[in-house]
Amino acid sequence: MFPPSVSGRVTRQILSVVVLIALWQLVSWLTGDRALVPPVQDLLAKLLDMMASLELPTHALDSLRRVLVAFAFGASGGMILGFAASAVRPLWTFLEVPLDFIRSVPPIGFVPLAIAWFGIGEFSKYLVIAYLTVIVVAFGTVAGVRQVDQTRIRAARCMGLSGWRLFRHIVIPSASRGIIGSLHLSLGLSFISLVAVEIIGSTSGLGFVIMDSRLLLQTDRMIVSIVAIGVLGIVTVLVFDLLLRLMGLARFMR
């Protein structure tokens, strides 16, 4: 399929990028409308433009702040709720069905309700981004605690641990894997909720820029923002993982 000189994984991966760009240029040329499908050079020019005018960094920072604030509150709330519900079983039986139902509604559905209740300010945005994190992390925590190996609990009880000390030294570390997994997942989901709140009712953030470009028919500005928010999401998740590692939490993933 490929010329024999082209071999090796890296070569093929680089080749894929080249082919993808060439394909894009071809489509752009075929449509004959640079404004509708801007070729790569136009996109790069727009990117530099938006960096120079500080439009991109400013809105990216707004978006990042929203995700981080909401995630911090959502994650702490989710863990507290999850541990409380693990300790008091009936509480979880009580909450599980309603929470599961709310989780099955896509977050964008709640944007109009949040705006109607709390206005278009930052609070309603934080709320829409955070609520899903609370639910996902609570489910992850409860599942993590539930999956702690019985053998391990018994081994600790042999050492005389019980009650709070058993919970603190055995249950929490054993459940950490599930909790960290749910944190990771909900951080990714937060970016979906972020775009939901920013495209429906916002005057700042990358989601707003995307909607604004649609009204002004600026495809290049829109595509740059779409890629930017994707990159922002990836980088945030990577930094989060790095922080966990630096904090020495990697051992709990074993």
């Binding site: 093929r12 991966q13 990028v17 993808l20 995307i210 495809t219 829109m222 779409i226 890629v227």
Partner: peptide, 23 residues
């Protein structure tokens, strides 16, 4: 060949594409 393109497309925020598709 497809590993990088798939990684790129998977990381694109689904809701961000709505305005582009409408355009």
């Amino acid at each position: 060949f497809f590993s990088l393109p798939i990684r790129f497309f998977r990381s694109v925020n689904p809701l961000a594409l709505v305005p582009l598709m409408i355009l």
